[in-house]
Nucleic acid binder design. Sequence first.
DNA 1: GGCAAATATACAAACGTTTGTACAAAAATC
DNA 2: GATTTTTGTACAAACGTTTGTATATTTGCC
Lengths: 327, 327
Amino acid sequence: MVTITDIAASLGVTPSTVSRALAGSSRVKESTRLAVEKRAAEMGYERNVVASNLRKGRSNMVGIVVPRIHREFFSNVIGGAESVLNQAGYNVIICQTMESLDAEIKALKALRNYRVAAVFLSHAIECKNGSHVREVLGNDLPLVQFDRVFPDLPGAKIVGANCEGAFTATKHLISQGYKRIGTIAGFMTSQAYVERLAGYRLALESAGMTFDPSIVFEDSIVRETGYEACKKALEAGCDALYSTGAFSALGAMDALKEKGIRVPEDFGIVATSNESFTSLMSPSLSTLGQQPFEMGQAAARAFLEGRTNTEVIPMELHIRQSSNRNK
Amino acid sequence: MVTITDIAASLGVTPSTVSRALAGSSRVKESTRLAVEKRAAEMGYERNVVASNLRKGRSNMVGIVVPRIHREFFSNVIGGAESVLNQAGYNVIICQTMESLDAEIKALKALRNYRVAAVFLSHAIECKNGSHVREVLGNDLPLVQFDRVFPDLPGAKIVGANCEGAFTATKHLISQGYKRIGTIAGFMTSQAYVERLAGYRLALESAGMTFDPSIVFEDSIVRETGYEACKKALEAGCDALYSTGAFSALGAMDALKEKGIRVPEDFGIVATSNESFTSLMSPSLSTLGQQPFEMGQAAARAFLEGRTNTEVIPMELHIRQSSNRNK
DNA sequence: GGCAAATATACAAACGTTTGTACAAAAATC
DNA sequence: GATTTTTGTACAAACGTTTGTATATTTGCC
């Protein structure tokens, strides 16, 4: 492998001059810079980034820590972040925590030891607060949290517009003429689910409808619990559901199909989701989609521009068959 | 940050002794090793991997190059590889090529400059052969290709059992009593699709059925072309299809629904796919699934064990409603 | 106890870059 | 033309490790 010392020797200058020339420093003459660049190209030089990183005490890598890489949501965030970071000359190093706090700490330590330029983080479910992050990362290393964020940690945060999104989704159901709209809610230990429930409530109240806790079905995010929730909703006289999850909505559809209830004629349903299957099933499922790719891009841009504010990424309402009575 | 020099000073030994102690070298006394380890822990020492990598000329990172991170298949491969590599003390650095040859070359160069321990690669569609890889990576850097591989390149290769899988899927349709089985095939420029077609043909012929090119519908991998292919298949008197793609099978389902043809009673269908929606739709779609997570794990193990053979990962036949007449 | 062998540690160079300081040459000022 | 200023390059140290060689210490043996 050819080094700057080789180039320097071949041109009769010093390595420092070559280094500066290649870095575009104003301290080297235009003519020597061109000579260096020419020779470097001829000799097929490429900077040893490891040496460069050691000397600079910082690398051009960004660490991304997620619970599981292969979840549709996270892989899209990573994809979005990578596409922006790559343009800016950064590479991406990935760690998955498998939802374990210990693994998250281990990953953060590894990234710190790699002297990454920044860490993008969506917390493991086991994490109850961000104290471990502060401890490991210190205050110098830029941190961008996304989706699962702790407000007490410094740095940029990228979150979905949960409240606003749920509001829009519920409003949509109201506008379609549904009269008794329940919700399949998630775990109230998670900020995102709390916000969605708030948005749902706000939409009802702003339309003069009463918020009825008896048709709020909490802790339902998988197919089976969605199925159960929907059966209860039917017993309680609901004619629509806003679901905070995609799989729970799928379960709800199972229940509706079983009872022979027509969707969307007799019952409307909107799910919060990024899952691709929602658009493919029949009837296709109306969804309130987070935009993970955009969140990843936003995280990258927040880091590149040195911002530390909280950015809210709007959710997109996809009106499909399951809630569209007009068509 | 505390360095080995700090530890050495605090113990009155030299950095080299500390380094060897922490590396578990037999050249340091048991008692000093313990003392070093104790002090290192006390002082909160963590190895500067950048310096270590520079000195060793090799890092403990593995580069993974894929067309797009957020494709379900690739994100699963990455997830599988990461889970194994992480256990072995490696971290994963990811590059996406967006199917561009130039981006693939750029990514490989970046990884080489990071002095990664190995490169796992699934080629961009633009690549017609592996010559660029050889040029950039040289012969020292271990290469593991997966899914989209070039046989002319050295190193381990992890591929799906395309021929065998298609054989099994087609056999399954035959066993269900379907009499005229067509196939929605992909592009014959891709090795994987060629192999699947071969498997399909083999299954027919081994069952004494004739291979009929007029019911081989090539170049159909999206929903629209799948829809068209299915209509043609129906005109040609088919009562079943083996589809090489999931989305084309979805299109086929559209066509069948439109014509009011019952699945699986009057028509059977099996798709090759890793897409999760296949199990969620109704009727659920029988699939021949590649096992991307396992492929990622296999790639990692091939690297860790220094193997350079070609490993074939079996495909899994998921018999669901779309082809199950017995139930 | 003296010598050789084995063991444990110290020394120093190296990995390839970056960057502060020093110095030389050229240009500008009087 | 001598002095100051600017510009361009050289020198050398540093980043924190690893590792070959040399040296000091201990051990074993007669």
